[in-house]
Every structure is written in C-alpha cells, then in structure tokens.
Design a protein around this nucleic acid. Structure first.
Length: 880
RNA sequence: GGGGGGUUAGCUCAGCUGGUUCAGAGCACCUGCCUUACAAGCAGGGGGUCACUGGUUCGAACCCAGUACUCCCCA
C-alpha cells in the first residue's frame, strides 16, 4: 500500500462524514439501557453563514458529544436554526426591493410567502457548512423555531402566561428602530460612544426680558418640549417659580418645573423636558402630569405635531434647526461632547425612544426560580467559568419586564384578538376569540374581530428550544404527559454558548424550563469567548478581518482547524485567533500520520522482543494511564485547551519521541531490521487507543487511520470505539521512568556540548543506592550508549551529573577548569537552597503553624540538598 | 454613574487550598542536524522585577487595600 508522506485531509473528510451518516452513528433514540448525553445546539440564525464564532462553539460541542459517545453514553446533539425575525425580515425586504417590490405593497400573506421561499432556498446553509467541520449532529432531529409545531408551542406559552397574569399590554417607552420599524429589546440596543454636539439654547421667560438656557444634544425635539425642569435647590433658578418659558421658533409656552432628578452640574442645570422622546423625561412627565407630544413619526421623520419641519428626517432637521436657531440668535454656544448613542443591533439605525403599545412579560416572579438555580452554593445549573455567576446574579436581581412584541410579520403572530370596541382576548384561534368576546360583547361579529398585527420576539420562541425540540406539545400537555423523548433527554447536559446571550437566551431558557417542567434545561453552561483577530479586534464583516472558515478548512483540513480553534481558548476568555494555530493543528495531524506510516512500515517477523522494547512498552503503559487520568480530569472541569494540549503531548512526546524511538528497529547496512510480533501488536494497540482519545479533536484523521490499521467490519469505527480505561497509578515506576528521561536528555545534552555526533556511542556509569532498574535498556537505546554500568568509584576524566539521588558519570575528554566551574556553581545554588530550607526549619513560627506533612517535606528537602552537595563535592575532588 | 473581569516570557495563555525544584506550556527565537516515519521534522538552548505601591503572614504570582492601564456588562 502506498501511503503519502503528508496527510491529505480532503480525501478523509469526503470519505468519512458520509460513512458516519450512512451508518447512523450520529442518530440517537431513547434507550433506557443507556444513559443519555444531550446537547441542543444554540440555533444559528437562519440567515447566517458560518463564522469563526460558530466554528469555536460547534467544535467544542462536537468534542463533547463525540467523547460522550465513546464513553458509552447515548449521545444526542440536536441541530436547528432560529427564524431571527428582524434579521430575516430585513433580508427579505432587501431582496424584494432589488426586484422592485415594496413590502408595503404586499399583503401580510404574500410577504410571508416570499419569506418562506427565501427560507427554503437559503435558510440552513449554515447547517450544511457545519458538516464540513465534522459536526456529529443527529440531523434527523433538525428543527426550526418557526416550524408549525414549534410555533404552536410558542402561542401556547403566550396564552398560558397571559392566563397566569404574567403577560400584559401597555404603553411604554420602547427602543424604536426607525429603520426596521419595530421595537427592539434593551438587549438589542448597542450603545456606541459618539461625538455629539451639545447645543445651548435660550428660552425666553414669559413676562421678562430674561431667558433661561438649556443644553441639549437633540435640538430637533424642542417642539415636543412640555416643560423646562430645574433643581429645586439651584440658586440660579429660584426666581423661575411659577413662571412660563417660551419655546423658540414655535413660540409655545411651557411651565418651569422643579425636581431633584436634575443634575445641577450638567449643562446649565436646566433641562428641556420632552416626555415623548426620552425615558427620563417621560417619567418626569408622569410625575408632573405633563402632556406628551410626539414630534416624530415611526420612520424617524418630524411629525405634524411638531408644527414645523414636518416630514423632514430627524438628522436633517437637527442640522437645520441648529442653523435656524443660530440665525435667530437663540444659540449661545455649541460644545462637542462624548455620549453613548443607542444603535439597533440589526439595522444599526440610531434607536429612538418611543412611546407605543406593546406586550410585556412580567419578569419579577417568573424569573425567581431561574435565579436560584444558578446562584446557590450547590447550583443546579453550573456556569463555566464561574465568574459569570456574578453577572448573571446582577442581571436577574435587576431584571426588567420583557417587551415581547415586534412590529414585524416574520415570526409567530401574537394570539390576541380585538373586537374594535376596546375588548381584547388572548387565545389561539379566531373561533375561540369569537366565543370569548361574545361573553362581554354580544354584538360581536366574526368579521370585525382583528388579530394583533405584531409578532413575538424571536427569543420568545428560542427560550423554549430545549423543550420543544423534543416535545412541542409539552406546554399544552404538561410535564407529566411529556413524550418519551423529552422524558429521556431532558434536562440536557451541556449548553455551549456565548456570554453575550447569557440573558437573552440562557437565563430565559432556565425560566421556561422551570416554569413548564419544574426542572433546569441543562446542567452545565460552557461560555465561550469572542473570537478576535490577533490585534484584539472583534471579527466582523465590516472590518473584513475574519477568515472564511470553509477556506481555512480547505487550507488546513477540518482536523487542523478544530485543533487550531481550541489550542488557546480557555472557557469564557476571548480567543485571539491567529491562523498559525491552525497550522499547529495541521502539523499535529501530519505527525499523527507519519507515526502511523512508521508503524505500518514495520516488517514483522517471528523474532525475540528486545529488553529495550519491553521496557519502552512498560514506560508508555504507565505514562498513558497517568496522562489519561489527567485528560479525563481536564474534561470534567471543561478545561478544553488543557485536555487538548495533554492529548497532543501524550502522542507527540511520549508516544513518538520516547516510545516509538525506543522500539524502532535499527538499520544495519542500510537495511531496516524486522520487529517482533508482540511489540508490533502492542504498538498497534497503543495506536488504536491514541486514535480514540484524539478522535474528539480530530475525527477525520483518526477514523482514516483506524481503517488503515487493518480490515474493519462495517460498524467497527473509531467514532464508536470505547474510550480507554486507565490502570491504577504506579507512582514509583512513573518516577523512575521520569528519571530515565532526565538521564537520557542529559546524555544528549552532554553530547551536544562536546560537539559529538548523535551517532557516537558513549558510556554511562551510575552511582546510586537505588539505581534505575526497570528501564536500563531503554536508556541504552535512547541515549545511544555502549555501556551503562553501576559503579561506586569516581572515574577519572568524566562529566558528571545528578538525577534525583543518583549520580552519573560519562567518560569524555573533560576540560577540568570548565567542569570545576560548573560544579562549583551547582554547589553554590544548592547551598543557597539548603540555607533557605534550614531557615524555615529553624523558624519556630513555621514549625508551630505549618502542617506536619509540610514540615516533613522541608526535612526531606534539607536531606536531599545535603546529599546533593555531598555528591557534588565528591565529584569536585575527583577532578583533581 | 453602577457592576464584573483582566494585567505572568516577544505573542497567546496555564498556574487549582498561600508551602519542594513554582515561576510553567504552546508558538516565536537561537544553536546543531536533509539521522531512510515526519524539515509540517529531530536533538539541544536562551528568555519573566508575576503591572505598580503598601499591608497581612513564618512564608505571597496567589489573600487584603490603594494606584495605573485595559476589557466586558448595565444605566
């Protein structure tokens, strides 16, 4: 068989993903004889294409799910997408616009037809892309938040929560997106620091020649002013009590009010009060019973109520009004200040605080169990890393009511019905609504009943995700009648998501889970960081600093990219991505490939196993067990990068550099020597176990090698192989094995120092009360010795070194002066060390306070150091 | 303004209950090797005032206070 010198990922990827699919390895069905391990995917936006954040997130999920599968769990990873109302609607609107169709010209039904067409055609591209990464999702379970059954559940929840009194309708100041023409939640507003002009404007005081100066960054709203407010204790304005002031340009009279809400220091200490356009002013307005004048239209233009500039865009108006006010002498100065301006996450339009009728979910009571589930000494839901608990707590304790209505068409339409006479009922169908309305309005007629025009916030459907992907009828039926799937898979095990949506989504899923099943939706929440470029900038389309994930996969292989993503991504910390990480991953894949090539090339014959081979096997066995334990421990703590690095080093260092080098048969006269059957078979076993533990990180190459090792039955695949079990730790042996590595390294170093070729064989003499016993031939092989003997003599003309309690000598030509220097330096160091230990031991307070084990340890350190010094001094004297 | 992080080698990060040889890893760098698995490699090596100041302690990268810089969230 011809095996290439470098690993070719493309072939393996094209081969094994379809093979896994065909054999249903990703599929999961409830099976009472096995424990479930479940992850629901954070459903990507249906309009989305794969970006680096998805890569990180889904690689982690795939690693977890693949390992769980190998550990024998019934592993189920549910994929799907989110309908993303505002983003999708914006996309469809844009597409229609290109075709010359205006949304406003379409009926709701026709628009939705277009939207569904778009979804069928382009939605879900991202799921196909995930397959290139190797994501082992159970694709038969793919869900979409707006598919019929899931939508139905959303309406059930709305009706139910309304019945329970948690949902209400009210006029509120909302964050209005004048471009998307919808309200957006607080969480969807991005505050950006901007340079703004703070304009100082004089308002004349009625019946006086004086004026009062207000400062505002929003002069275009002065027509909506209904008062000017000053601090009751502000001495500058005491004379204004009971006075009226006149708004420039429109010459409207408004009262001066007094409230200690005012910050005397900001601007002039006098505030224009515009209840319709600022949340604080709105509250002031309520308190002081001020009228509300809405001077802006829904799309951000000046309304008729403003009297002037009608129809002008708000920003154009701002420029114009400043100019006009200046010309008429009302402006005293203009300052440039920095302030935060809210922008819509979806359309990037400047958010306008706006009063409107919206539906809200009351959060105070319903969120309580979700707070307790996380913030607790022994929490039901664990956040990883823990530092997010504080953030979560802070948010949940100050939670605001959730505005759940959106002025859009793409989404679940709010199941509220109006009879046109001020009666509202909430229920799923028009027929039901008719019945209900009739009880208060006997005159009501079917054709007069109108459904609410708005749809629900997308998060109002995705908060049900872990429930409805398994049982969409759970809301209706209740937990007791939940279907088999939900009972089996819920609560899920791990959720992998970004901290940015801890509140949007994670908290709300816990709320919904608690409300409808009395249980948490997941046990662990692994919060990934943000993928940034190496300058620390967030990756974004507009900056163009994000590599195309699929290109990366093409270039470095899926396995390489997966490793690259995880090499440096501790939970919750941002990842400074650099393509060289993928190179490291690719390099490792190549290393694995070549180790396999070496093993595959061995000539196996019926010969005797060498002692060095026996010892190497023992060494690797104990090392493998030791490291496997540590790797398992890292996994259990979700320390993914650590688990990965240990796995890589176990293969690269322990297996390749130490084990394979030790068992590799020699070349004699350019002729590779054969290997014995036993060593070969053991090596293959080791390789298989290593493929298994590497598999979650690098599924493709490991599956490829698994099958190249030998003929396999159809179902005998790496993906479903058993995770290895570690043997009991043999600490003494491990310690000896570690010592042998030090000995070997030191011999090699000596060779390098003496400018000897690695091919030159050396002799080694050991002086020890407890000499190396299990790995002597291993040392001979790897240090390339022709003699390794015990002695109690000082041999003349040797370089000497110490490993643990033993001293070693290598006969080589020695520069006595240099050697003396070196030993003296080492004696010096050890004496210093000894002194520090002895100071500790002489310290009464230490002796009284420190734990006994610790004192014991210090005594051992003292003895070790003294022993070492003695040995070194002996070496020194033997130099003479 | 309120809340939460972070600052350890050139870079990216570990360092768990304060206690060996605890100052570490990977990359980068330097030296020597095209040694027939692998130059995407092998062998070896150098490199840090643990941001700063003070405190607690027998003992501090680790605990406390303050300072500087920085990131995130909320208002």
């Amino acid at each position: 068989m011809e095996i290439g010198k470098t690993y070719n990922p493309k072939e393996a990827e094209a081969k094994w993903y379809p093979y896994w699919m065909k054999n249903n390895f990703f599929a999961s069905k409830p099976d009472k004889t096995k424990k479930p391990y479940t992850i629901v995917i954070p459903p990507p936006n249906v309009t989305g294409v794969l970006h680096m954040g998805h890569m990180l997130n889904n690689t982690i999920q795939d690693v977890l799910i693949r390992r769980a599968r190998m550990l024998g769990y019934n592993a189920c990873w549910v994929p799907g997408t989110d309908h993303a109302s505002i983003a999708t609607e914006a996309k469809v609107v844009a597409l229609l616009k290109e075709k010359g169709i205006k949304k406003t010209d379409l009926s709701r039904e026709d628009f939705l037809k277009h939207a569904w067409e778009w979804k069928e055609k382009y939605g879900g591209i991202i799921l196909e892309q995930l397959k290139h990464l190797g994501a082992s999702c159970d694709w038969d379970r793919t869900k979409f938040t707006m598919q019929d059954e899931l939508s139905d559940a959303v309406l059930d929840v709305f009706v139910d929560l309304h019945k329970k009194g948690h949902i209400y309708r009210g006029v509120r100041m909302v964050n209005w997106d004048p471009q998307g023409l919808t309200a957006v939640s607080d969480e969807e507003v991005i505050h950006k620091e901007k340079d703004s002009q703070l304009v100082y404007i004089n308002y004349k005081i009625k019946g006086s020649s004086e004026h009062v100066t207000i400062a505002t960054t929003r002069p275009e709203t002065i027509m909506a002013d209904t008062a000017v407010c000053v601090h009751p204790e502000d001495e500058r304005y005491q004379h204004l009590k009971g006075k009226l002031v006149i708004i420039p340009l429109i010459n409207k009279e408004v009262p001066v009010i007094f409230d200690d809400y005012i910050d005397k220091e900001f601007g002039t200490g006098a505030l224009k009060v515009t209840p319709a356009h600022d949340i604080n002013d709105y509250n002031l307005g309520i308190k002081h019973k001020l009228p509300v004048i809405d001077a802006l239209t829904a799309d951000g233009k000046i309304s008729e109520a403003a009297q002037i500039y009608i129809g002008m865009d708000r920003f154009a108006c701002r420029k114009q009004i400043i100019k006009d006010l200046q010309e008429q002498g009302f402006v005293t100065k203009i300052e440039t200040i920095k302030n935060k301006v809210g922008h819509s996450e979806r359309t990037d339009a400047v958010i306008e605080p706006r009063l409107s009728m919206q539906w809200f979910l009351k959060m105070d009571k319903i969120s309580k169990p979700a707070l307790d589930a996380v913030v607790n000494d022994d929490p039901e839901v664990k956040l990883i890393p823990e530092k997010f608990i504080n953030t979560y707590k802070h948010w949940m304790e100050n939670v605001h009511d959730w505005c759940i209505s959106r002025q859009l068409w793409w989404g679940q339409r709010i199941p509220a019905w109006y009879d046109g006479q001020g009666n509202t009922v909430v229920c799923k169908t028009k027929e039901e609504a008719f019945e209900k309305l009739r009880s208060t309005n006997t005159e009501v007629r079917m054709e007069n009943i109108k459904q609410d025009e708005d749809v629900l916030d997308t998060w109002f459907s995705s908060w049900l995700w872990p429930l409805t992907v398994f049982d969409p009828h759970i809301i209706k039926n209740g937990w007791d009648k939940a279907n088999e799937d939900l009972k089996y898979y819920y609560p899920t095990n791990d959720l992998v998501t970004a901290p940015e949506i801890l509140f949007f989504w994670v908290a709300r899923m816990i709320i919904a889970g608690k409300e409808y099943t009395g249980q948490k939706p997941f046990t662990n929440v692994y919060l990934t960081g943000i993928v940034r470029d190496k300058q620390g900038r967030k990756m974004s389309k507009s900056l163009g600093n994000s590599p195309d994930p699929l290109e990366l996969i093409k270039k470095h292989g899926a396995d390489g990219v997966r490793v690259g993503m995880l090499l440096s991504s501790p939970a919750g910390n941002d990842l400074m991505f650099d393509e060289t990480y993928c190179e490291q991953g690719r390099n490792f894949a190549n290393k694995v490939w070549n180790a396999f090539r070496l093993i595959k090339g061995f000539m196996v014959e019926d010969i005797k196993q060498t002692e060095a081979q026996k010892e190497a096997i023992l060494g690797f066995e104990i090392r493998f067990s030791e490291q496997l334990e540590l790797i398992n421990d890292n996994y259990s703590k979700y320390r993914m990068s650590d688990a990965l690095m240990k796995t890589i080093k176990l293969f690269w260092d322990d297996f390749c550099a130490w084990y394979l080098e030790a068992i590799k048969p020699d070349f004699i006269d350019g002729q590779a020597q054969p290997i014995d059957k036993s060593t070969y078979q053991t090596t293959i076993n080791f390789l298989e176990q290593l493929m298994v533990i590497i598999h979650p990180w690098m599924p493709f190459i490991t599956e490829e090698i698994w099958h190249l090792i030998g003929e396999r039955k159809q179902n005998d695949c790496c993906i479903v192989a058993n995770w290895p079990k570690s043997q009991s730790l043999k600490e003494d042996l491990l310690k000896e094995y570690d010592s042998t590595k030090w000995i070997i390294t030191t011999v090699r170093d000596t060779r390098a120092q003496k400018k000897l070729s690695p091919k030159d064989k050396l002799e080694l003499f050991e002086t020890s009360s407890k000499p190396i016993s299990h790995f002597r031939n291993f040392v001979i092989k790897l240090a390339n010795l022709n003699k390794y003997e015990l002695t109690s003599e000082k041999i003349e003309g040797t370089i000497s070194f110490i490993v643990n309690d033993s001293s070693f000598q290598i006969p080589v030509s020695v520069n006595v002066e240099e050697e003396r220097e070196r030993i003296l330096k080492e004696i010096d160091y050890n004496k210093g060390f000894l002194k520090s230990v002895q100071v500790k031991l002489a310290n009464e307070k230490f002796m009284n306070n420190a734990k006994p084990e610790l004192v014991e340890l210090e005594r051992k350190k003292e003895a070790d150091a003294m022993g070492k010094i003695k040995t070194l001094e002996a070496q020194l004297s033997s130099l003479k």
